[in-house]
């Protein structure tokens, strides 16, 4: 119990002191995870949309697979990406191992299925509701899809936030492919793992609190943006 009090104190001390090491770590966490979510969106959203509105043989298998991949163990992704990016691996010449780019790749792989699966469900439900109406407007399939994406934007935004949550909280993959190198690839979660392994439990928990606050802040920001967008749309 005393640990909890101490961790609140540690969190407060770190934040209040504007610890430069902490800022660096927080900034890298955000950079890596936001970039990963951005790329995962570019890949996962069209994939989910494609699965939502098309019918082809084997579609159910693809959907079940993508949905199951939401549960990809980060450590496995980390290992696979490590093996690929390692100098002994196929992509070794790119020299990406132990860089933030490697972490972005690993997190992107973790987040794509989340965005694709949630987008697929959202857009398929929406398409069921909208299909006839959009056909009546005389739109081609791409224009219909564009409208579905816009109409489902808030649910889709939640899918992106779910992906961001997964990315920013994940440690198993980034510690393997990033190496938790001080000033280079150390992010919030790997710093927490390191402090835990040093037995500095209060500090580790304090960092965890800060991570929670960051996740909260990102979600709150999106929520406020949404509220502002709605206000301006119906002003």
């Amino acid at each position: 119990m005393q640990d909890f009090a101490a961790s609140f104190f540690e969190a407060f001390r770190l934040v209040a002191g504007l610890d430069s090491g902490l800022i660096e770590i927080v900034w890298l966490s955000l950079k890596v995870s936001i970039t990963a979510v951005f790329i995962a969106t570019v890949i996962g959203l069209p994939l989910g949309a494609f699965l939502a509105v098309t019918r082809f043989p084997g579609r159910s298998i693809v959907i079940v697979t993508v949905t199951a991949l939401m549960g990809l163990p980060p450590v496995v992704v980390g290992l696979v990406v490590y093996l690929l990016l390692s100098n002994a691996g196929a992509l070794g010449p790119l020299q990406l191992l132990y860089t933030p780019t490697a972490m972005i790749i690993a997190q992107t792989i973790l987040v794509v299925p989340i965005i694709a699966a949630l987008a697929r469900q959202t857009l398929e439900d929406l398409n069921g509701e909208y299909r006839d109406q959009l056909m009546l407007f005389g739109l081609g399939s791409l224009a219909r899809l564009r409208t579905l994406l816009w109409e489902g934007r808030y649910s889709l935004m939640t899918a992106l936030l779910a992906g961001f949550g997964r990315a920013v909280a994940e440690v198993g993959a980034v510690i393997i492919v990033g190496g938790n190198i001080n000033h280079v690839t150390r992010v919030m979660t790997t710093a927490i793992a390191l402090e835990t392994s040093k037995g500095n439990l209060a500090l580790a928990l304090g960092l965890g609190l800060i991570l929670l606050i960051i996740a909260f802040a990102v979600n709150a920001l999106v929520f406020l943006l949404r509220a502002a967008a709605e206000r301006s749309a119906y002003a």
Binding site: K31, L94, L96, T101
Partner: peptide, 12 residues
Amino acid sequence: RNWFCVPLACLF
């Protein structure tokens, strides 16, 4: 190293 970047990732 930059080969893999999309614009945003490059920036970061």
